[in-house]
Nucleic acid binder design. Structure first.
Lengths: 204, 204
DNA sequence: GCGATGTTTGACCGGATGGTCAGGATGACG
DNA sequence: CGTCATCCTGACCATCCGGTCAAACATCGC
């Protein structure tokens, strides 16, 4: 079911090239829109050679999605219940925005999956992710009850952070086109804006 | 290049059914992932009959996108420079959230297009949309300079509104899975959350 | 240098997909 | 009821797509 276990130098190089190429293609076209030919060409391999390393298109996609999950959830896991509430949440926002800046393809891969109804990630979202959100929402609720942040709906606060940060990766084209050529890198201004937004929302 | 101009009763009914069916399929699968067979079946027509009303798959997609634009831009157009600033922006947020609740397929169609690099909408985004945003950003900037709202980066404020409201349509599956079966309709809580968020951000 | 193991490819397959076309069915209208 | 325009369909086509396979080629340990 999985690809060839990378044991030789060549295997490591080629599976790496395939996953990198596939990430770009799946992120831009979605699963159904992507073709093995596109991936093979981007990876610099022939299509049969692709299928020597991975048993199917589906397997490549799944490999990317599962590999993505830790990267995606770690910033929320790092939210420290013992830390200073506003600073903790702002740090989470900053980490998530950095992810959008440094891994936009991963963000768009995830966005495509969820847009298409999360056929492959529904289980993880309803399980692992839901549990993690619930746990961190409880932390936020306690902070609010202790008066250390203003009262907020914890889950919707987390949704807001996801929406606002991932927007800069998923809708990057729109952001750049609307801002125009004047400002080439929107991220510094975005960071300042989001910091102000969450500070004013949360600081008691 | 366009479909048959709807002049008869049958034409109106069938072009309508086709566009409705195509909206659902394109929103769920993206342009490349959607097939004419899926659309035809959802519309209750045969594939050749589909192509009697529209010259190509591309034409259906384009028709949907262009028809979508007014729906999409009207809420921002309605932002009144003469109104009370905070109330105006909150009303814009509410209108945009209503759009996400009532037209999630349209939102996902748009999201797919932008995710894929906006190949068909780049012109409109860099033109019409950019101009509109620029004009409304100027209004917001004037409000800030007059001290009627707190200082904000106008464009990024608008991006925030888009991100936060569209998130509830584009990532609807994720929102529902994370909240769990307990709360079936996330929109009332979302509205309250967003109202608090933007009030605290903007109210002087 | 040689056999074993690992890697690559051209040729091919069955099914899906966007699209065409000739002709038949079904209206609208006098 | 006749006729003309509109509407619909089965059969078909070329191309694309995911995937297979046997055979050629490279690499490595000895």
């Amino acid at each position: 079911m999985n690809e060839v276990r990378p044991r030789t130098r060549i295997q490591r190089r080629n599976t790496g090239a395939i996953l990198e190429a596939a990430l770009a293609v799946f992120a831009a076209q979605g699963f159904r829109g992507a073709t093995l030919d596109q991936i093979a060409e981007a990876a610099g391999l022939s299509k049969p050679n692709l299928l020597y390393y991975f048993p199917s298109k589906e397997a490549i996609h799944l490999d990317l999605l599962t590999g993505l999950l830790d990267l995606w959830l770690d910033p929320l896991r790092a939210l420290d219940p013992e830390g200073e509430p506003v600073a903790e949440i702002l740090a989470y926002v900053r980490r998530k925005l950095e992810l959008s800046r440094d891994f936009p393809l991963e963000s768009r891969l995830f966005a495509n999956e969820v847009l298409q109804g999360a056929p492959r990630l529904a289980g993880v979202i309803a399980g692992e992710l839901r549990d993690l959100v619930e746990a961190k929402a409880a932390v936020i609720r306690r902070w609010a009850e202790a008066g250390r942040i203003r009262p907020v709906h914890p889950q919707h606060l987390i949704f807001s952070i996801w929406a606002l940060t991932q927007h800069y990766a998923d809708f990057e084209v729109q952001v750049r086109l609307v801002l125009g050529a004047g400002e080439p890198d929107p991220f510094p201004a975005a960071e300042a804006h989001l910091e102000a937004l969450f500070t004013r929302l949360l600081a008691p």
